[in-house]
């Protein structure tokens, strides 16, 4: 199946507006019959969606199967948590005071993620295919084991964020406030990356997934474009990590293990790689399936795995292509009859 034919099977962009409207109404619904738990579950889904949206920028459009995006997620979450930890203890980090103010720790987290992405991207983007995957996996695990060994910040047990994180004095106060913050940030990045994908820069990234040699023949050095894309992608995933620290008030090495990286790949593939917002659908399905299936059976991962295989085999465009694929099959049957 060609890329164009997959693209034709995938729903257009407008349903994402409907999804965001429905998501915006979720706290209202929870007030009249749902529960706070529903909001926390959705918050978790939206944060994972944002992390996977970041990943999908290089995976779905650049063809780069990165298994190190959990490390960007972890850099975001740990930066906020570590700065809050020093704020709580009243001591300094490299001579600088800690802070629980997200207007300081948030940008610091993104800056560190940018530096980390440039440094690692300059290395891993010189490799391709299986080597790229293995390099990203290795880097992810290096950071994972480093954080486990770092007893000062909780080691394997992770660390609790004791002081309330705030925006220059404004505290989130409720699950709904955190939920709406996450939703707005997610909508912002979906919009931003959608614009970027359609730009000349985005076209180069998409073209690089096809054949880099062809790009050089028209005067474009794919490496530099891919490095910028990888850095943007890592920074977006780091923002998701910051939101994770806000919502969980706790960070753990598990947040940056390779399993988290693999989850993000699954979320992106499940939702659909050819739309920026595909991972949003993937994350909602992933988190809700995780919750409901684990309630039914302890072997829920087996059932979930079969479901993922079914989606990949039957719907190459992910969940976004379910409707169009079924319609196409019915149209074929009607014409055969």
């Amino acid at each position: 199946m060609t890329l164009s034919s997959v693209r034709q099977l995938v729903v257009p962009n407008w349903p994402v507006l409907l999804i965001f409207v429905l998501l915006a109404l979720a706290p209202v619904w929870s007030m009249y019959g749902g529960s706070d738990f529903t909001i926390r579950l959705l918050t978790r889904a939206l944060i994972l969606a944002l992390a996977a949206v970041g990943l999908n920028f290089v995976l779905g459009f650049g063809g780069l199967v990165s298994l190190m995006h959990a490390s960007f997620f972890g850099v975001g979450a740990y930066t906020v948590a570590i700065l809050a930890h020093h704020d709580f203890n009243g001591d300094t980090l490299f001579g600088l005071p800690g802070t629980s103010n997200l207007l300081v720790s948030g940008p610091a987290a993104v800056f560190l993620a940018l530096v980390f992405a440039v440094a690692t991207g300059a290395l891993v983007l010189r490799t391709k295919g299986a080597y790229f995957i293995m390099m990203t996996l290795a880097l992810n695990q290096m950071l994972f084991f480093f954080m486990i060994a770092l007893q000062q910040y909780g080691g394997e047990d992770g660390m609790q964020i004791y002081l309330p994180l705030h925006l220059s004095g404004y505290e989130f106060g409720s699950d709904s406030a955190i939920y709406y913050t996450v939703l707005i940030v997610l909508a912002f990045f979906v919009f931003l990356l959608s614009r970027l994908v359609c730009s000349r820069f985005g076209n180069v990234i998409r073209a690089s997934s096809e054949n880099e040699e062809r790009l050089t023949a028209i005067g474009i050095s794919p490496f530099h474009y891919k490095l910028v894309a990888f850095t943007i992608s890592g920074a977006v995933t780091a923002v998701a990590g910051v939101l994770w620290a806000i919502s969980q008030e706790y960070v753990s090495p598990a947040d940056l293990s390779w399993i988290r990286s693999a989850d993000l790949v699954v979320i992106a593939v499940l939702g659909g790689l050819v739309r920026v917002w595909g991972p949003l659908v993937g994350a909602l399905v992933f988190v809700l399936a995780e919750y409901f299936l684990s309630d039914i059976t302890v072997y829920w991962q087996l059932v979930f795995g079969l479901g993922i295989i079914a989606v990949v085999v039957l719907f190459p465009g992910g969940m976004l292509s379910v409707w169009a694929t079924i319609r196409k099959i019915n149209w074929g049957r009607a014409h055969d009859a």
Partner: peptide, 23 residues
């Protein structure tokens, strides 16, 4: 580097066309 040669003003139409199918 190949991209620098192209940037100098040497345009190339490769054998087999090699257009980008996903654009």
């Amino acid at each position: 580097a190949s991209h620098k040669i192209a940037k100098r003003g040497i345009g190339f139409v490769p054998e087999g066309r090699h257009i980008f199918p996903n654009l």
